[in-house]
């Protein structure tokens, strides 16, 4: 049992996360508080949801770089629609945002499954096409808090429960954490308990064999890319609610690299077939900690980027050098 644990990437990642937390706490005890933890969850749940969706695609051997565009489109279209309709309904906002995500995902899946084009290229193309079209039609003006439909503001501030600090200010666990938990459980069930999930893993291992098994690969591709779109739609609404502002140029530049980095650190293979939800969440946690908590160590925030880079480079190098050494023993350095 211990041996199995020690073979797993997640175990080491867990150590790194704990070590990081210990270091920060030693320097600045303000880190190790429930409040800081809750804040971190509030800020990072959205990215973690994207990462889980991205993992599903990666497991099948694909890649999807369109999710930031999907998220922001879902959010902005939902905000604009709600303003135009003069309603403030979270359900409607989510329905619109997720609907945008589903359509987007279906278009991606269409190009991928019917034309057999590289998934990277397809998602690069569709995100440019749709995102540009949306901005052309709807404009690119940000929607400020004063105009933002109330449901977003409420959603961003709602807590599951409230606590009070020693100084008397109140804080709580955001509903975002519940949304994340829901997504994690659903995705875990899909990947671990359904045949679909096993087939997704199998696709990343040997696509040709899956094809021969008679399974409807096209349907699975539609499912995966739509699922990613759906999660991006949810994240879009959460992101707008978090910052209480809807800027159509926001998520596009900021989410792609951290999510990719987190999933990679979590031990998922870019070739598909390997990776776990636990690893992905740990990887995202490490990225979030690095991005948001270096300040507590007294390091100026302009160092953030540098440390994220160092961790990513070291993390992936160690994994791959390990794999290479293991491979060399079996004379498979000949396998490129």
């Amino acid at each position: 049992m211990v041996k199995r644990l020690l073979r797993r990437n997640e175990t080491y990642l867990c150590f790194v996360v704990i070590a990081f937390c210990a270091t920060v706490t030693a320097v600045n005890p303000a880190f190790f508080t429930l409040q800081n933890f809750f804040d971190l969850l509030h800020d990072s749940s959205g990215s973690a949801i994207l990462a889980v969706g991205f993992l599903v695609i990666l497991l099948s051997g694909g890649i999807d770089v369109s999710f930031p565009a999907v998220a922001i489109m879902g959010q902005y279209i939902a905000v604009k629609a709600l303003i135009a309709l003069h309603v403030s309904s979270l359900a409607l906002a989510l329905a619109i945002s997720c609907g945008v995500g589903l359509v987007f995902g279906a278009v991606n899946a269409f190009f991928i499954s019917f034309f057999n084009i590289s998934t990277l290229i397809v998602t690069l193309g569709t995100s440019g096409l749709f995102y540009g079209a949306m901005l052309q039609v709807l404009g690119s003006a940000g929607v400020y808090a004063s105009v933002l439909p109330n449901c977003f503001k409420v959603f961003g501030r709602t807590n599951v429960f409230q606590l009070k600090t020693l100084t008397g200010s109140s804080y709580g666990l955001s509903v975002f954490a519940l949304v994340l938990a829901g997504v994690v459980i659903l995705s875990w069930i899909i990947l671990r308990r359904t045949l679909l999930g096993r087939v997704i893993y199998a696709m990343g291992g040997n696509m040709e064999a899956v094809r021969r098994s008679g399974v409807n690969i096209r349907a699975i591709q539609f499912f995966m890319y739509c699922y990613m779109g759906l999660l991006a739609g949810v994240m879009g609404v959460m992101s707008g609610s978090l910052i209480q502002y809807s800027d159509p140029t926001y998520i596009v530049d900021t989410e792609l690299l951290p999510v990719l980095a987190g999933v990679m650190l979590g031990g998922a293979s870019i070739m598909g077939g390997a990776g776990t939800i636990t690893g992905t969440l740990l990887g995202m946690a490490l990225i979030a900690l690095l991005e948001k908590n270096l300040v507590l160590l007294g390091i100026p925030s302009y160092w953030d980027q540098f440390f994220v880079g160092v961790v990513l480079v070291v993390g992936v190098s160690v994994t791959h050098i390990q794999r290479r050494i293991r491979g060399r023993r079996q004379l498979s350095l000949l396998r490129e």
């Binding site: 690299l257 980095a261 980027q305 540098f306 994220v308 880079g309 160092v310």
Partner: peptide, 10 residues
Amino acid sequence: LGSNGLFLGV
């Protein structure tokens, strides 16, 4: 992707 973050960080 990693070195992208690193170089930009530097």
